[in-house]
Amino acid sequence: MIKVSNIVKTYNKGSVQAVNDISFEVKRGELFGLIGPDGAGKSSIFRILTTLLLADSGTATVNGFDVVNQFQSIRNCIGYMPGRFSLYQDLTIEENLEFFATVFDTTIEENYDLIRDIYVQIEPFKDRRAGKLSGGMKQKLALCCALIHKPEVLFLDEPTTGVDVVSRREFWEMLKKLKQQGLTIVVSTPYMDEASLCDRIALMQGGHILSIDTPQNIIASYQKTLYAVAAPNMYKVLTAMRSYEQTESCFAFGDCLHLTLKGDSTIDDVSKYITALNFTDVQIQEIVPDIEDCFIKLLKEN
């Protein structure tokens, strides 16, 4: 459905390298995630695929159309939700939706099926101006606007940034339903915990893809044994563990520390070290890494 080969994009006459020789493919019906912090190059890739930017070199096709020469055909079959929720603040929900429907030469009624589940949630407020909506509601409206012409591919650039946990969960539920209807979805996010909700992901940093695979395979490729360390005074233990010579990496992770060890050191070695320092009530156990652990490891390896 989407094929990207060796895309390079620089800004300011080549001084800023935004996308550095990136290639990947997205299959029809897939939910594909670009995961990475700000400045990873996610938005640039989105804009190149939505024909808004020209790459310096490399080629890309969307639905078989070339992003440079056949941009009109691409514009006919994609839906796009830019990073900032792009709505007219002074128009109401209904007016926004109607406007975008018209621009895409369709009507709300024609494709109502696709947006019904989402639209009913905001419909009670349909006469309210978009500028007065909460982040979650704006996000839903923007999604409706991107879907209104029944696109074949949906590009969502950081749809959950700055939105609270409740809205984020609801949003991913909506994406799941859309995927079931056969839509191909490309989504970007800086939240690592959302990675596991995608079929396949590309972990990105500084214009490079660090790894690209299914979340399960990426986790499986984490070859180290990972331990979780929990203690009453986390910061003290963290500093202590960092000065432990057998520690390969140790960082805070939610309510515990994540620890990897050098060579063939074991939990027992750690326990001894910790007890020797008079720490009490320290629990250490082996755990399965998640995407964030993998990302941190990949960042350190690079």
């Binding site: 939505t50 024909t51 514009r75 830019p82 900032r84 792009s86 895409f104 030469d105 606007c145 012409h149």
Partner: peptide, 13 residues
């Protein structure tokens, strides 16, 4: 500035 121009440009309009 609002970002709506991106959507308009991406549309077949």
């Amino acid at each position: 500035e609002l970002g709506t121009m991106e959507i308009l440009l991406v549309s077949p309009f």
